[in-house]
């Protein structure tokens, strides 16, 4: 047994030791952040079923409330849906005609079909942002093949990119996070820009050409780069203040439920070797001294490099 004095000394030393350990954790977080995030991801993996159980009552209540709201004004809702259905029917016909025309044009141009990306669909396990970041955790089940850098989309548009991968869970850094930088192309002005998150609902557009400012309301799509394919819908341009273009995202960043993670693979389109790298065969010093073997042809020089008269 320890003496009373030793116990008093030990009791006084506990808090400083624990504070030192906490400082160590802070330093570890600054130096080796992925190690700490890996532990957090494992904990979330473990808790994923419990999260579903916790959220289930809330989801049921939401469904009931939606049903209740619909039931109170059925006639008006029906009329609205009929109008919307008519408009959608028109757009469906247009889409079918355009798809057929697109198919014909591609066929006549001998278009090489693009590879179909692999994807997994997952439910958002938890909002993982904290005060200073915007990220979500997805439960994608075991045996997935998601890699860091894969692209996450919801039903409407681009959501973000995968930053950490666990056995069942992946972490997606959303496009409005402060660390997110996505190369984008503007729809009508065809200018390139970088979409930079700033922890608000609408990421900013930066590094756009100064002679082609983004136009209010134009579409913003991804620009093909590395694992990010071209043409994914991102949102529309909006000027929140003069000279401050932002992107209003198509994806509903606040209420995420089902998210798909696409693996577009590495960018394996490598440029051919530059001409300078082609090994040039050295010609002999005096390749041809005598008359050319085809000098019987009219108006040909009899020696190379001398040119015709």
């Amino acid at each position: 047994m320890l003496s009373i004095h030793a116990r008093q000394v030990l009791a006084k030393a506990v808090l400083p030791i624990l504070i030192l350990l906490a400082v160590g954790l802070v330093l570890l977080g600054l130096v080796r952040r992925p190690a700490v995030d890996g532990v957090r991801l494992m904990a979330t993996d473990f808790m994923a079923p419990a999260y579903h159980g916790l959220v289930w009552p809330q989801e049921r209540v939401k469904v009931w409330l939606t049903d209740l709201r619909g039931a109170t004004d059925l006639a008006k809702e029906n009329a609205r849906l009929r109008d919307e259905n008519r408009a959608l029917r028109h757009w469906y016909d247009v889409a079918v005609a355009l798809a057929a025309e697109n198919g014909r044009l591609k066929k006549s141009l001998h278009w090489i079909p693009e590879t179909v990306p692999q994807y997994v669909t997952g439910r958002v396990t938890r909002d993982d942002g904290g005060p200073y970041s915007r990220a979500v955790l997805l439960d994608v089940g075991s045996g997935h093949d998601v890699r860091i850098g894969d692209v996450a989309l919801d039903a409407a548009g681009l959501l973000g990119r995968v930053t950490e991968v666990g056995p069942h869970t992946v972490r997606v850094l959303m496009i409005n996070d402060d660390a997110s930088r996505i190369p984008v192309t503007l729809g009508s002005s065809h200018g390139d820009a970088i979409m930079a998150g700033d922890d608000t609902a609408s990421p900013r557009l930066i590094f756009y050409p100064q002679d082609h400012h983004p136009v209010e309301g134009e579409r913003v799509e991804t620009r093909g780069q590395s694992t990010m394919p071209a043409g994914l819908p991102v949102g529309t341009v909006h000027y929140s203040a003069p000279n401050r273009p932002v992107v209003v995202p198509d994806a509903d960043l606040d209420r995420l439920d089902i998210v798909r993670v696409f693996d577009y693979g590495d960018d394996d389109s490598q440029a051919p070797d530059a001409p300078g790298r082609v090994r040039v065969k050295k010609l002999p010093q005096n390749p041809l001294t005598g008359p050319l073997p085809f000098s019987w042809l009219p108006n040909l020089p009899d020696m190379p490099g001398r040119g015709g008269q």
């Binding site: 400082v23 954790l25 570890l28 957090r40 993982d128 904290g130």
Partner: peptide, 15 residues
Amino acid sequence: IFSFGPPGTVLLSLL
């Protein structure tokens, strides 16, 4: 473990 802020800050603040 159940938050995703900068590691150690909550722990140090609590202590």
